[in-house]
Design a protein around this nucleic acid. Structure first.
Lengths: 167, 167
DNA sequence: TGACGGTAGTTAGCTAGCTAACTATAATGA
DNA sequence: TCATTATAGTTAGCTAGCTAACTACCGTCA
């Protein structure tokens, strides 16, 4: 994802505005800043998970499994819920299998398929991470009053709807 | 980056709140939604760039080069300005070299180093993409009045500062 | 029943990020 | 001067995303 450490300054924007018509410095600056902050928030979460030996993709799979009453799901379902391709989910599951955080179970009904179940070690990992994660999120979000958070989200949702301009 | 198609619903949040203390459903939901929308905005930009045969990393390198008066920079400088490692920049440059969008030039002063220069083809690529990019960004950001954009950015900056809670 | 289309999962090959280790060169300082 | 240290760039190996192509199996319907 774009890092954008070096956002365009006024001089650069002028140079680009000379060559290209329709450059609206204000909207470009806002857009790039929003993207950058999104990246930085994600990276903060990543670094946090890394201190627990996890990464976002695998962490999310563990959470999806813990949501299930029997701690079990299939690669396809997990891919669907995580919003990644089945190929990507294959890779995530392999990593979790290697680390012993999940196990495979044959599915006797459909032999194309198999189940993935959270192991005790996987649950332990979540029990280590989540009580550390939740208070931090709370502390972070508390920087903004709830009403303003709602406004923030509303604006972001507006932008998300507008992102169809890129289609 | 996290896709989070399947954000936790009330039932799931209750289940997690039973096991873990300190779960603040409100802040978790807001946090995850913000991350998700950030991802989606980035992906929209990616899909747009892909229609022009570009990707974010390479596009940004071309832009950084065009900012320079002589259209020239070094891998180290580019890595620094793009906010990626020198190793990653090596890969980005290789792709651009292969596509003929940049060229290498030996540096006679420091023989460890060399210069990267935007080619005519690279400039043509930007001249194709940018006049398509700027109006779309403008249209997208116009969904929000300028004052509210400032507020939005201010809130996001607040969160970014708070993201140190994950350290 | 058997052919065909759909589905589950994997693999290969791509982009793009990282760190760590490496080579080559430059710069410094005893 | 020469040893040490710092810097520029590359490479290997990892995570994690994608598509396309593949195997294996299921289901359906003629």
């Amino acid at each position: 994802m774009l890092q954008l450490k070096d956002l365009p300054d006024a001089k650069v924007l002028r140079k680009f505005a000379e060559r290209y018509v329709g450059v609206d410095s204000c909207s470009v600056t806002h857009f790039l800043n929003i993207l950058r902050i999104g990246t930085e928030l994600t990276e903060s979460l990543d670094r946090f998970l890394a201190t627990h030996g996890l990464l976002q993709g695998r962490w999310w799979v563990l959470i999806l499994l813990m949501r299930e009453d029997d701690l079990t799901s299939t690669p396809s379902e997990l891919a669907e819920k995580a919003g990644v391709s089945r190929a990507t989910m294959s890779g995530l599951i392999n990593g979790l299998l290697r680390d012993g955080l999940v196990v495979r179970q044959e599915d006797n009904i459909d032999r194309r398929s198999y189940s993935i179940r959270l192991t005790a070690a996987g649950q332990d990992k979540l029990d280590e991470v989540m009580p550390d994660y939740y208070p931090r999120v709370k502390k972070m979000m508390n920087a903004i009053p709830v009403q303003q958070r709602e406004d923030l989200l509303k604006q972001l949702l507006l932008l998300k709807e507008q992102s169809k301009v890129f289609d």
